[in-house]
Design a protein around this nucleic acid. Structure first.
Lengths: 345, 345
DNA sequence: CTGGCATCTTCGGACTGTCAGAGTTTCTGG
DNA sequence: CCAGAAACTCTGACAGTCCGAAGATGCCAG
């Protein structure tokens, strides 16, 4: 085995060519003579040459954006939506905050861009990012699956901060709803609750490919008890519907997004936390003190940032061949709507 | 705004210093005069200098590992298990192959280590890795959740190639069973199948936190039909049990791991694929040509490798504060056990 | 046969930040 | 007054890429 690892220059020297020609040949540039290219490739294989992806990424960046050198900026792209509820806006802010913090640690900067009807068009976004020399794009979640397939992805590395995106099919980062709900239910069981009940709005669960409902049913299947509480999954969440469900199935702990339900439960004679419990499935949505799940947008933003930067360092742009989803389990938050220990009975 | 972004060199020129001094000063090296350092930092702030993180990472790595032929070695740690079935061994091989390929592209090498009763003890593994200067550890899946909490993780970056590992709680990479089964069922529905049936061994599903079963039930809930087929989930998979279930519930397409069931179905009068279909949930387990899910161990190994290398490049060792799980959906494989189009009726 | 132009192939320069080692200046002690 | 240390700064080499330039060759009109 020869000592030092072969480099572009050492390879060029042995071949009697310039580093440029070797570089171009290995990357299949049409500028080099096919026979020369073949010779170079063969020699590279024989010498065991492996290009340094970090250097590749750097140089590519440096040369392309001549003058306006790559300063390590990432774009956080938000889609303007007409009536985004307050908690969603906060979720977005937390995502961006997490990303910005992590980016700063790693020497990058995050800048926010807004796309949509009132904002910038996708086409203009493309040219803005190009001219600013930005190649890392973090897409913030939008209720309607955003369509950014018009961006010239050959030049960008992207990541979506929600479940699955199909146009284009990028890597994504989001909370692990399935595992989190399962863990929450196990925790409730340990506290002695025996009849957990779940309520959801249909479109919320559909958006997550039914993961909330699926986890709930999986828990019930694996903890066979007397007459499990069927989940209340409805188009529109109303007091009447909830009341009927609560009366009929008598859950001893209720899980859902809307903390208004606590009032309704209390009006139906439940004492929270003495006789009944409540868990909020997204603490950003709670309007009163309450136990619940923190979906950890800040950590999600941070992780998204890490994955994006890793892609840039590998000089990996474009739509990935095998998109992956990275999840982080939600964080359990204690609160006054649950008893703190198993009742001794 | 001045035109070009300030660089280390331009900054040095205006200050009448060399680029090295400026670089050292900004990074707080004790080699520079404190008063000079202060001057440099002030000028850098004033000029809005931001170092290029890509170039920094590259140079740091380049200088540090000068002369060394390889950039790094990763350990693929396998746990010796007494009677690992053939398909599991193949799964492991594919994982390692994927990792090795990706590692090579990124300038790393993968070496396999075996830990367990007959092999190396965890304590010895620690010292072996230390003395070899290996800092990246990829843990291959083991049926009983492996315990490597005794390793001195302050010195290692690790990743597990299966769902959740608790001791220690590392990042992990695995197949997205939930989403894959959902997608498979949707595909079957598009082919006109109306009564999908699922069979599983209990421990298989428990290991995945019931994800197979949960996805199946979630699909049934969202496609309400006449009398859905209840999944057959049993401790031990027997011909008798399957026969009874198949006779009673009359599925028109069956999903499960064991392809022996195809024979049993045919003995019960089913014609595959004319009247009935079959889908294998892990094509590595199939013993005859068959449609099914490729869990993509090769891609999983590759992705695990990427994540591990990204950690090393960030100089991140130890147990992560917020462990994440990265999933890749399984890849659908067509096969002769399914009809190829919706029957025109 | 020559001059002009187009095409094909290869090369050189410049770019980023880092680190080791070498150079220069200042200070200390015998 | 000088050897040697200490304090501080600088030079050189390094990775791969892209643009423009240089050189080589071929073709056609005049």
């Amino acid at each position: 085995m020869p000592g030092p690892a072969p480099t572009l220059r050492s390879l060029a020297r042995t071949l009697g060519l310039s580093r440029t020609t070797v570089s171009d040949a290995l990357r299949g540039s049409p500028r080099v003579d096919p026979s020369t290219a073949a010779r170079v490739k063969k020699a590279a294989r024989a010498a065991g040459y492996r290009r340094n992806p970090l250097a590749g990424a750097l140089m590519s960046e440096l040369r392309r954006s001549r003058g306006t050198a790559f300063r390590g900026v990432l774009a956080a792209v938000d889609f303007l939506e007409p009536d985004r509820p307050d908690y969603a806006a906060r979720y977005h802010r937390e995502l961006v905050l997490g990303a910005t913090t992590r980016a700063t640690d790693l020497g990058f900067k995050v800048e926010k861009f807004e796309v949509g009807h009132a904002g910038v068009s996708v086409h203009r976004l493309d040219s803005i990012l190009q001219s600013r020399g930005i190649h890392g794009v973090m897409l913030l979640p939008a209720w309607d699956e955003p369509d950014l397939s018009n961006l010239d992805w050959t030049r960008f590395a992207g990541i979506y901060t929600d479940y699955i995106i199909e146009r284009p099919a990028l890597h994504s980062v989001c909370s692990d709803h399935y595992r989190s709900l399962l863990a929450a239910l196990q925790r409730l069981a340990a506290l002695g609750y025996q009849r957990p009940g779940l309520f959801l709005q249909k479109h919320q669960d559909e958006r997550l490919q039914y993961r909330w409902g699926a986890a709930f049913r999986a828990f019930q299947e694996s903890h066979p008890g007397t007459k499990p509480v069927p989940p209340l999954i409805v188009e529109t969440f109303t007091r009447e519907g909830f009341t009927a469900w609560f009366r009929r199935h008598k859950p001893d702990v209720v899980l859902g997004h809307n903390t208004e339900a606590i009032d309704w439960m209390e009006n139906l004679g439940a004492e929270v936390p003495a006789t009944h419990g409540f868990v909020c499935l997204n603490v950003l949505m709670k309007t009163r003190p309450c136990a619940g799940l923190d979906l950890q947008p800040r950590q999600l933003g941070a992780r998204a940032c890490e994955l994006l930067i890793a892609q840039l360092q590998r000089n990996e742009t474009g739509i990935p061949e095998w998109p992956s989803t990275t999840t982080i389990p939600a964080h359990w938050m204690d609160g006054p709507t649950l008893r703190s220990a198993k009742p001794s009975k």
